[in-house]
Amino acid sequence: MSLWLLVDPHLWQQTLVYAAPLIIAALGELIIERSGVLNIGIEGMMLVAAVTCFVVTWQTRSAAAGIVAGMGAAAILTLLLVYYAVALGGPQITVGLGLYVLGVGLSSLLFRVVFGVRTSPPSVQTLAPVPLPGLADLPVVGHVFFHQTLLTYLAFLLVPLVHLALFRTPWGLRLRATGENPRSVDALGISVERLRYGAAAVGGLLIGLGGAYLPIVLTGTFSDNMTAGRGWLALMLVIFGRWMPFTALGGALLFAYVEAFQFKAGIVEKAVPVQFLLMLPYLFALVVLVRIYRGARAPQALAVPYDREARG
């Protein structure tokens, strides 16, 4: 197996395409966690977004409508979680798990109710790649970076956007403060609830976008459990990325790269058991996570419900 495989431009192109849904969902979760709420139902939310996007696109023949609908569906679920977390002070992990299970069942149910049993699966048109004028003609890098779908471009644009929003706006300052010490924020007369709901809305929309990406860019169909663990991966990427957008992007790229590499390697390398190759990206992520986790610090008030009148 030649080492040139590692720098194959097609591999890089693949990496970008498949990293995109991961990074979008991870950015959404990052915003939510920065406000102090832990949402572990991402997988279920992405599934609901995927099925909603698919159904709406199929009905309206408009990908844009589908994407927006998918984002909205996920945002509703996220707001539900934060309602439990903020208004009711409930256990965030339990509710998140419940939403995950709900999402899995609801998405399959919705698909079945709308489409029933067929001999030919329903499908929609996937987004076509939009080559950027001029840039797409550059040798080698042109095809890799500048010949992607609009959603893929958006995914990477979102990284600096979210970074700027978190670190260079008053909203971001207050949001981060809420995740570290909500009491301090409250004492300044800033509404902790409003910030957390706001984060939930924005984060939920992004998680939905990540979920919608799968049918509308990659497969043109919906199938049960099509996220295949990507929601959990997004959760891990937030930790891996130390709650910073650019580092999370690094993690997403790393994972997608190893995953794409594994498929290429599988064609030529027959001695390695296929199960090992399938496991490789996760193993890689785990090893790197253990190494770089030192010093990473979660928002201090993560997953702790804020009660103003709590003593001590």
């Binding site: 693949q14 497969t219 498929f263 296929v274």
Partner: peptide, 21 residues
């Protein structure tokens, strides 16, 4: 290639893309 799953369209797509490449 072995996808590892009969019903995962995303992974199947990745597999096919690798073969086409």
């Amino acid at each position: 290639n072995w996808v590892g799953d009969f019903n995962d369209p995303v992974k199947a797509r990745q597999t096919a893309e690798a073969q086409i490449a």
